[in-house]
Design a protein around this nucleic acid. Structure first.
Lengths: 213, 213
DNA sequence: ACCCTCCTGTGATGCTTATCACGCCCAAAG
DNA sequence: CTTTGGGCGTGATAAGCATCACAGGAGGGT
């Protein structure tokens, strides 16, 4: 199957035996762009490894405000899914496919078993945590210290990197939602960025020209 | 020794054999109030379990701004120390004792060994991550969505809980630093809180009367 | 063609918070 | 006693952003 070579490429650090098991028991699940992989309060029964695509992980509060946490890419895993799965807790987060996405779901029971058996799995879990933690701290820094114009730039850079594209097909309204701002403000800031030659604005789409400042 | 009963009480979930090892190899280190346990860029060579006291974990950027992350209490462990130790990385965070504090340092080599050997240790590491992650998310929520007055209340509640005391001996200047605000603003907000009967202001000290709102 | 909806641009206004500029009190040091 | 420095209170001012109000354009459906 196609998954075998993909997993092998993405998870080279796994011991051969572990890799084989991952391929055997991992359940491939596909999601369309914009589809939700996980929603607040949902029970988690498996750890999620990303095979292809991009997953946006974020939080939403009672009033519909959202906090962006980080994006997940192929070869990465969702830290939340790991702990919550391990402890049978419901998640407090949302995960949404930004493009068509493919993940590998590992049943929770095996997580524990593997951790005790395969050093590379344990290391992988730890590394997953470490990276997500770092990313979350980075997000925290930006929200705490940066003004909206810098955060907007950061948003654009993130999407450019995650989607490997200079075209972002998102409405200002959605960008505003993600940055906890308002459409009008984003509109004005985008205009400034366009004037400075960093972006070019199209209908329903932002083209990134040059974000070096 | 005194540590034996303390560790037993705090880490009941550990298997007896693991508990014994923890007591054998754990190095007890004491810190005075206000002392730093860890500073940005410092190499980490052991995981830290808190035995007594309170540790404030936070970040500091180039310009001296700080972001509060969470407080650690007896029975808890520093997630950062765990991953960084495991991967021999330097920390990007600061940790400071809020009161006289006692910790148990576990050499990094044993972390890996125990993870493969003791289910309860692996569970403990996972749980540590999960809790710190949750706390970090909580902090993120507050910074992203709450106004300064609510964040000040949150700050007071945290200290009340962590220090188990209704008296906070901290200058407004320091509180402002922690909340990324300015002394004047804290002064005005405190006055409001005092007028509403939530706190009573003393020289160099805030007395918490009632934070229920 | 027409309507309807979604996306965008722009001015006006006000809230929250940062910053500046003082002056006051108190305590420790000279 | 006087000086000095740290903590505090308070007004004035301004930056950053949210919100409201309104208008125009583009596209899809009927």
């Amino acid at each position: 199957m196609a998954t075998a070579s993909t997993t092998q490429r993405l998870f080279q650090q796994f011991e051969p035996e572990l890799l084989k098991k991952v391929q055997q028991v991992g359940l491939v699940r596909k999601f369309k762009a914009e589809e939700y992989l996980m929603q607040t309060g949902q029970q988690i029964r498996s750890a999620v490894l990303v095979l292809d695509g991009v997953i946006k992980v974020f939080r939403e509060d009672d009033e519909g405000n959202e906090v962006f946490m980080y994006n997940l890419h192929p070869g990465e895993a969702c830290a939340i899914s790991m702990t919550c799965a391990a402890r049978q807790l419901s998640s407090q987060i949302m995960a949404k496919a930004l493009v068509d996405t493919e993940v590998l779901a590992i049943p929770v029971e095996l997580m524990d078993e593997w951790a005790l058996k395969y050093r590379s799995w344990y290391q992988f879990v730890l590394e997953t945590y470490r990276s997500r933690f770092e990313e979350l701290l980075d997000t925290l820094d930006h929200i705490a210290f940066r003004n909206l114009d810098e955060r907007l730039l950061w948003y654009l850079k993130q999407h450019q990197k995650s989607l490997k594209s200079n075209f972002i097909k998102t409405s200002f309204t959605d960008i505003a939602l993600e940055l906890n701002s308002s459409r009008e403000v984003i509109s004005r800031l985008m205009k400034k960025l366009a004037e400075k030659g960093h972006v070019k604005l199209h209908k329903n789409e932002v083209e990134i020209l040059n974000l070096k400042m």
